[in-house]
Amino acid sequence: MKKCFYYFKSDEKHMEANKDSFFKHDKKHDDKHDCKADKKKDAKLVGFAYDVADPIINLPLPLNFRLNPQPSTVAAATLECVKKGDPVWLNALFHVNNNSATPVDLVTRIYRGTIAPSNIIYQSIVEIDSEGNDDATSAVAQFVDVLPNDEEGVTYFLTAQLGTPGGALFVYGPITFTVAQIRQ
């Protein structure tokens, strides 16, 4: 195959004077950028599940999902036929509104299997400012879980709870929870 080179007319004299080195192909440079040499094995998506709710929210913000000190399920998603060692990429986005006069803590957790203390695989605690001071905000959870066993149907639960007693913290949408199983 014939190679084509493009250059500016002003470079013509320089090219003519150095033509032996100018058109010489740099094989080391190609190897440096060859991704195929670095690839071990392609990973592929083998399972995907999701849970979404309230994709469009209007004002005033809804106050129908009040959090308490016990975990409340925000979303859940189930993967079928999982294999030991497969990584599972979990992503969650939901929103909260603090109607308290003081800041409160939001506790976000992801459970594998059932909602029990022994099944927590992710936990974050975030302070939500008081009413009127950045009190309506988004909550994000991202985690990679490596599956410990082969199983038929593994359910992941996204929960939220009030970490500060006496607060008035509400969950509202949009709510998105995605679970992607990767095979390497």
Rank of each mutant, 00 (worst) to 15 (best):
M1A: 12
M1T: 05
F5H: 07
Y7W: 07
F8R: 13
K9G: 01
E12V: 15
H14V: 05
M15Q: 13
A17Y: 02
N18K: 02
N18I: 00
K19E: 10
K19Q: 12
K19D: 08
F22Y: 14
K27C: 00
K27S: 06
K28G: 03
D30W: 02
D31I: 07
D31K: 11
K32Q: 09
K32P: 04
C35R: 05
K36C: 07
A37F: 05
A37P: 04
D38A: 12
K39V: 14
K39I: 15
K40Y: 13
D42A: 09
D42I: 02
A43W: 04
L45I: 15
F48I: 11
A49W: 09
Y50P: 00
Y50Q: 13
Y50D: 12
D51P: 09
V52C: 06
N58A: 10
N58V: 14
L59C: 07
L59T: 03
L63W: 02
F65R: 12
F65I: 04
F65Q: 06
L67P: 12
P69D: 11
Q70S: 15
T73C: 01
T73D: 01
T73W: 03
A75Y: 11
A76V: 04
T78C: 00
T78P: 02
E80Y: 11
C81L: 12
C81R: 11
C81P: 03
K83L: 13
G85C: 05
G85I: 04
P87Q: 00
W89Q: 02
W89S: 01
L93K: 10
F94Y: 14
H95Y: 15
V96P: 08
V96I: 14
V96D: 11
N97R: 12
N98F: 05
N99K: 14
N99H: 15
N99Q: 15
T102C: 06
P103N: 08
V104E: 00
D105H: 03
V107M: 06
T108C: 06
R109N: 11
R109E: 14
Y111V: 10
Y111P: 09
Y111F: 14
R112C: 04
G113Q: 04
I115Y: 04
I115P: 06
I115H: 07
A116W: 01
I120A: 14
I120L: 11
I121M: 04
Y122I: 03
Q123A: 06
S124T: 11
I125L: 00
E127F: 01
I128P: 07
D129K: 10
D129W: 01
E131V: 01
G132D: 08
N133G: 03
S138V: 06
V140N: 15
Q142K: 08
F143S: 05
V144P: 01
D145Q: 06
P148L: 03
P148Y: 00
P148N: 02
N149W: 09
N149P: 02
D150T: 09
D150P: 03
D150E: 13
D150Q: 00
E151M: 11
V154F: 04
T155Q: 08
L158I: 11
T159Y: 10
T159Q: 09
Q161K: 12
T164D: 00
T164W: 08
P165W: 01
F170W: 13
F170C: 09
G173N: 08
P174A: 08
P174C: 06
I175T: 15
A180F: 00
A180V: 07
Q181R: 15
